[in-house]
Amino acid sequence: MHDDATAAVPQETGALIDHILTNYHEMHRADLASLVPLAERVEQVYADDPDAPKGLAHALTMLAREMEDHMTKEEMILFPALRAGGGAGIEHPIAVMRADHDDHAESISLIRKLTADLAPPEHACGSWRSLYGGTATLLEELAAHIALENDVLFPRFEPAR
């Protein structure tokens, strides 16, 4: 899915953190800022449609809040510490970030459930299809982001597991 993108991932820790901030944190914020109002519109327009993704705007808002809190902790606390070389006790904030990553899975699961796994019905309009396409892209990018942190960045600073 993102194999060719992985080849372009910088190896040096500071450059890798910059890559994560630019390619994931900024993108997630922009994607969620457009997806939430789009979900609200689709839910309003199709309020009487049994296939409508009722609750999707709320689920995306909750994911956005979780992610904002998580990304802010990384930007303010963890990433500056990693740039400085980690140090004693760094595994504790990393463990918190890993737990947050696991928590995101619950929100993602709810979003998939509300949207029939992001498969729009035959009669879905362009906005509805765009909403599901954009949400699918967000979830793919989020999975790549989490994998990059969990599998590449964090292990550099953790004792051998």
Results as ranks from 00 to 15, higher is better:
D31V: 13
R83T: 15
P10R: 10
T72I: 09
E74I: 09
G14V: 14
H70F: 00
A59V: 10
D18F: 15
A105V: 05
R83G: 13
P155L: 02
E158M: 11
L139Y: 00
L114Q: 07
P121D: 00
H19P: 04
I111G: 09
T137C: 03
L131W: 08
R156V: 04
G85K: 08
E122Q: 05
S127A: 11
R29F: 06
A33C: 08
A81S: 11
H104T: 04
L32W: 06
R112K: 06
K113D: 02
A136H: 07
I90R: 12
E75M: 15
A144K: 01
L82V: 10
F157D: 04
A144D: 08
D31H: 10
G133P: 00
R161A: 04
G86D: 07
G89E: 01
T6A: 14
A99C: 05
H2F: 08
P50E: 14
Q44S: 14
A84N: 10
I146P: 01
R29T: 09
A7G: 06
I146D: 01
P93N: 11
T72E: 15
H145N: 02
P93R: 13
A124L: 03
S109D: 08
G55N: 13
Q44E: 09
A144C: 02
H25N: 10
P159E: 00
A143M: 03
E91K: 15
E140W: 04
L110T: 10
E149T: 05
A99H: 08
P37D: 06
K113P: 00
S130Y: 04
L118S: 03
A160D: 06
I94M: 09
M62L: 11
T61D: 10
F157T: 04
P53D: 12
E91N: 14
E68A: 15
G134C: 03
D31S: 12
A7S: 07
P121V: 00
I94L: 08
R98S: 10
L138M: 03
A57R: 15
A8G: 09
R156A: 05
D102F: 00
I17V: 15
I146A: 05
I111L: 09
P37E: 13
H28M: 12
H58P: 04
A147E: 05
H19V: 06
A52I: 07
D103W: 05
V45M: 07
A147H: 05
S127E: 03
E91M: 13
D151Q: 06
L139D: 01
A119M: 02
G126P: 02
F79Q: 09
A116F: 00
P10M: 08
H19A: 12
G133D: 04
M71R: 05
L60R: 13
D51H: 13
A33E: 15
H70N: 01
P50W: 14
D100A: 09
T61G: 12
N23Y: 11
M62Q: 12
A47I: 10
T22K: 13
H25P: 15
A160K: 02
E91F: 13
E68F: 15
D18C: 15
I90P: 15
K113N: 04
D102A: 02
A88Y: 13
P155K: 03
F79C: 10
S127N: 07
R65T: 12
P80C: 12
I94P: 04
M97N: 03
V42C: 11
V42E: 01
A30P: 05
H58D: 14
L60M: 08
F154R: 00
H104Y: 01
I77V: 14
V42Y: 08
S127P: 00
A143I: 06
R29L: 07
L35S: 13
R83W: 06
E12M: 14
